[in-house]
Simulated assay, not measured.
Amino acid sequence: MASIPFDTLKFVKTLEAAGIPASQAEAFSAAVRDSHESVDVATKRDLKELEVSLRHDIGDLRKEMKEQELRLTIKLGTIVVVALGAFTALSKWIV
């Protein structure tokens, strides 16, 4: 995660232009800067990277599900063939 960019000098100059004494403006600026440093926020870039990663993971899962589907289809087909063979053999043996 990234920190929020904060221009302390511009902030102080804005407060001073509004009539706040320089010492108070600097104290406000330091307080805001410190609060920004302690916050862990997601940027648009962070979210974009997460989106790309999730899309990649979802693509991998879809591919894996297709492979599993093919394996299950083959197993089911094998079971059906074996069952039909067993029924055919039993029907010839019984009759």
Rank of each mutant, 00 (worst) to 15 (best):
M1V: 15
M1H: 14
M1G: 12
A2K: 08
S3E: 12
I4V: 06
P5I: 02
F6Y: 12
D7Q: 04
D7W: 02
T8W: 01
T8S: 04
T8Q: 04
T8D: 01
T8N: 00
L9Q: 11
L9C: 07
L9D: 13
K13I: 04
K13A: 05
K13D: 11
K13E: 13
L15W: 12
L15K: 10
L15H: 11
E16Y: 06
E16K: 14
A17N: 14
A17V: 05
A18M: 09
G19I: 04
G19H: 02
A22C: 06
A22K: 09
Q24R: 03
A25D: 11
A25Y: 03
E26L: 12
E26V: 07
E26K: 14
F28T: 08
F28A: 15
F28W: 14
A30G: 09
A30N: 14
A31R: 14
A31K: 15
A31H: 15
A31C: 15
A31S: 12
V32Y: 02
R33N: 13
D34K: 07
D34L: 06
D34H: 07
S35H: 13
H36K: 08
E37Y: 04
E37V: 06
S38G: 11
V39C: 10
D40I: 10
V41Q: 11
A42L: 13
A42D: 11
K44F: 15
R45E: 10
R45K: 12
D46F: 00
L47E: 12
L47I: 13
K48V: 08
K48P: 06
E49C: 01
E49V: 11
L50N: 08
E51G: 03
E51T: 14
E51Y: 05
S53L: 07
L54N: 14
L54T: 14
R55G: 08
R55D: 14
R55H: 09
R55E: 15
D57E: 10
D57R: 13
D57N: 09
I58S: 01
I58L: 05
G59L: 09
D60A: 15
L61C: 10
K63A: 15
K63F: 14
E64H: 10
E64T: 11
M65A: 08
K66E: 11
Q68H: 11
Q68A: 12
E69R: 13
E69N: 13
L70W: 06
R71S: 05
R71P: 02
L72N: 15
I74W: 13
I74V: 15
I74C: 13
K75Q: 10
K75P: 02
K75M: 04
L76N: 04
L76Y: 02
L76D: 05
L76W: 02
L76F: 01
G77D: 07
G77W: 01
G77H: 00
T78P: 06
T78R: 09
I79G: 07
I79P: 04
V80P: 02
V80Y: 00
V80T: 03
V80D: 06
V80R: 01
V81A: 04
V81N: 04
V82T: 00
V82Q: 01
A83Q: 05
A83P: 06
G85I: 00
G85A: 03
G85S: 02
G85M: 01
A86M: 08
T88G: 07
T88K: 03
T88R: 00
T88S: 03
L90F: 14
S91E: 02
S91T: 05
S91N: 01
I94G: 09
V95H: 09
